[in-house]
Structure formats: C-alpha cells, structure tokens
C-alpha cells in the first residue's frame, strides 16, 4: 500500500510540473518550491553523513587517537579554514570565505595545468597525426582505393585526410576569425564552416535525443510502473 501512495504522489508531482506547459499555476509553484527545499535538504544530509563525518571528522579522530599531534594540528587548521565558508551567511564578513576559496582554487589550478594540457592539447594533436601507430595521411590507402574501388576502401582512403583537414581548417577559423586577406585564411573559411555546421548539426541531433529520453522516461513511469500498480489494486 505504501508504494502505491508514494507512487501516486510522485505522479501527482510529475503532472504538476507538466501543468506548467499550459500555464504557470499553484500546483507547479508548489512542486517547484518543494523541489528546491528537498534538494537542498538532501544536500545537507549528504554533506553531513557522506562528506563531513567520513572525510573530515573520522580522519581527524584517527590521528588524535594514534597520538599524531602534528597531523592532528594540520587537519584542525584545515577544518578551521574550511569553516570560514560559513562567513557567507553574513554580509559584513563574507570576505573571509575568500581564504578557503583561494586555497582550493589555487591548488586545483596549479595541479590541473599539466594534465589538462596533456589530455586536451598534446594527445589530441598527436592523434591527429598518427592513429594506432600509422600515419593518418597514408598514401598506400589511397593507392589501395584505386586498385580496388569500393565503399569501404573509399572510406579508408579518405578517413585520415578528411579528419586532418577538418581539424586544421577549424583551428585556423577559430584562431584567425578576424577579417583577413591571407589566402590560407580566406580559402579555409568555407570548408571550416561546412565542417562546423555538420558537427554542430550532429550535436543538435544528440541534444534533441537527450531531451526526448527524459520525457519518455517520465511517461514510462506513469504508464508502465504506476498504472499497473493501480490496475492490480482495482482488480
């Protein structure tokens, strides 16, 4: 019985939010505000039970128990600096929260420089030159196509060159987007735009797919999970 009541409430909330599609109304406002409260309440629970206790309190207690004074002091200073986040509640002292922020942001930025550059730039450039140890501009694949013309050999022959050209023209487009008479910049504009439009079109198609999935899931919940429950109860 409990499940039916809870599920029915879930359906009520779902429909309340959908009712916004007709127009703003008290049901929607209720659901929206309930959501804000419940989400932040949930955040409080998680922060306390899953972050503060296991990640801060227990390690601190452990190091105090084992008599490691230096480490305990070190952690207590950390906790103290962390507590400065609470100064956000006051308008006058909110600048104190800049201390923890500056440490976290500073450390994060410094640490991220090398791996980010490596993952996003160096490795990407590298694989624009070689894939699986082979050059992407492989003349042999083009010869192979002329020897035995077929869709798959055409794909193999054009794959590397099209990818390399694509990356280059779009990079040129991004870095020299101002008006320029340099022939390289001038004549790569149109192909760059074509690549971009096809790429963004694909991204749009995927985005659309994602949005629909969310709606399908809600309808699936109502039609295939909640409704059978009610049906069973009535019959």
């Amino acid at each position: 019985m409990g499940t039916i009541l809870w599920s029915t409430f879930a359906v009520f909330l779902t429909l309340s939010i959908f009712s916004f599609l007709i127009k703003d109304n008290p049901f929607y406002k209720f659901a929206e505000h309930l959501f804000a409260g419940i989400s932040v309440g949930y955040l409080v629970v998680i922060t306390f039970t899953q972050i503060f206790i296991p990640r801060v309190w227990k390690p601190l207690m452990n190091s105090i128990d084992t008599g490691n004074i230096l480490r305990s002091a070190f952690l207590i200073i950390g906790v103290f600096i962390g507590l400065l986040y609470l100064s956000r509640a006051s308008n006058k002292y909110s600048w104190l929260s800049r201390y923890p922020i500056s440490i976290v942001v500073g450390f994060g930025s410094g640490f991220a420089i090398a791996p980010s550059l490596n993952a996003r730039v160096l490795k990407q450039l590298h694989s624009t030159v070689v894939e699986d140890g082979q050059s992407l501009l492989n003349i042999q694949k083009i010869i192979a196509f002329f020897r035995d013309p077929s869709f798959s050999s055409l794909y193999n022959a054009t794959y590397g060159p099209l990818l390399v050209i694509g990356v280059l023209v779009v990079l040129i487009y991004f870095f020299f987007s101002f008006k320029n008479d340099n022939p390289v910049i001038k004549y790569t504009r149109t192909p760059a735009l074509l690549y971009m439009m096809v790429g963004f079109g694909a991204a749009f198609g995927y985005t659309f797919m994602a949005r629909i999935s969310l709606f399908v899931d809600r309808m699936n919940f109502i039609l295939n999970r909640w409704w059978p429950l009610i049906q069973n109860k009535l019959m």
């Binding site: 930025s109 420089i113 730039v121 990407q124 050209i165 779009v170 991004f174």
Partner: peptide, 22 residues
C-alpha cells in the same frame, strides 16, 4: 569524421584556454 574534427579543434582551444586561465 566531421564531428570528431570539429570537437577536437574546440577541445584544443579549450585546453589552451584552461591552461592560460590557470
């Protein structure tokens, strides 16, 4: 092909941007 090429060019731009901002 086209999507990988475009997204890669963007990614390289973003990667350089992150480094510069850091």
């Amino acid at each position: 092909i086209p999507t990988t090429a475009v997204m890669r060019a963007i990614m390289i731009g973003v990667g350089l941007g992150i480094t510069a901002t850091s």
